[in-house]
C-alpha cells in the first residue's frame, strides 16, 4: 500500500467519497459536496468567460483602441443585468432576441443540410452501397428501418393496410434503438465509475498498480 502524500489527491478522494456516501442515504457530507460542486463550477465558468471570452474578444481589442464598435455589443450584453431591475427588466429581451434570432436563423439551413439532406443521402441505397455483400445488406436494413420508424410517427392516417405492419416494424426498430442507447449509456456511466474506483484504489491508496 502506497498512500498518496499529495494534498490535492486527498481532497479529490474525500470529495469522491462524499458524493458516493449518497448511496447509503442523503447525508450532510453529501450535501456539502453537492453545494461545493455547484459553487466551484460556477466560479470556474465566471473565470473561463472572463479570461477566454471577454478578455481576448472584447477588453483587449478595445483597450488597444481597435474595434471600438464592440463597446456597443458590450452594452447590449450588459442589458442582461436589467433582469434584476423590475422597472426596466423588459430590456433583457434585446440580447435574448439577438442570440435567439441569429441562432434560429442559422439553424434552419444547417438543419436542412445536416439533419435532412445528408441523412437522406446516407439512407438512400446506390450501387456503391454494395461494395461488400454485408454492407449492402445492412444498408437495406437501415433503409427499411428508417421508413418503418417514420411510418410509426405518421399519425395523419389510420393504421391499416400496409401502414399497420410497417409501423409495427418501426416499433421493433425503436425498441432495439432504445435498448442499445440505454445499454450504451449505462456502460458509459460504468466506465466513469471504474475511473473513480481506479482513482481511489490507485492514485489515493496505492493498492493497485
Amino acid at each position: 500500500m502506497n498512500v498518496s502524500t499529495n494534498p490535492w489527491i486527498w481532497i479529490s478522494a474525500i470529495l469522491t467519497l462524499g458524493i458516493f456516501s449518497f448511496l447509503y442515504k442523503e447525508n450532510p457530507f453529501y450535501r456539502v459536496c453537492e453545494h461545493l460542486f455547484v459553487g466551484i463550477s460556477n466560479g470556474y465558468s465566471i473565470t473561463f468567460v472572463w479570461h477566454r471570452i471577454l478578455m481576448p474578444t472584447l477588453i483587449n481589442p478595445v483597450a488597444r483602441g481597435e474595434r471600438l464598435w464592440l463597446i456597443l455589443v458590450a452594452i447590449i450584453g450588459a442589458l442582461y443585468f436589467t433582469r434584476f431591475i423590475p422597472r426596466i427588466s423588459w430590456l433583457v429581451r434585446i440580447p435574448i432576441a439577438i442570440v435567439m434570432g441569429y441562432g434560429a436563423g442559422a439553424s434552419i439551413p444547417r438543419a436542412i443540410d445536416a439533419s435532412i439532406i445528408e441523412q437522406l443521402k446516407a439512407t438512400v441505397i446506390t450501387r456503391s452501397t454494395f461494395e461488400t455483400i454485408y454492407a449492402g445488406l445492412w444498408a437495406i436494413i437501415i433503409f427499411i428501418g428508417v421508413i418503418a420508424t417514420i411510418s410509426y410517427f405518421f399519425f395523419s392516417r389510420e393504421r391499416k393496410g400496409i401502414l399497420k405492419p410497417l409501423s409495427y416494424l418501426g416499433i421493433i426498430f425503436i425498441m432495439l434503438g432504445f435498448g442499445a442507447s440505454f445499454g450504451y449509456t449505462v456502460m458509459a456511466r460504468i466506465s466513469l465509475l471504474i475511473g473513480r474506483l481506479t482513482f481511489l484504489l490507485r492514485d489515493w491508496l496505492g493498492i493497485i498498480k
Binding site: I142, A148, T149, G177
Partner: peptide, 14 residues
Amino acid sequence: PNTAAKRGMGFGIA
C-alpha cells in the same frame, strides 16, 4: 438497427 431508428426519429426532430 439503432442507426435506422435514430435516423427515422432524427427526421422528425429536424
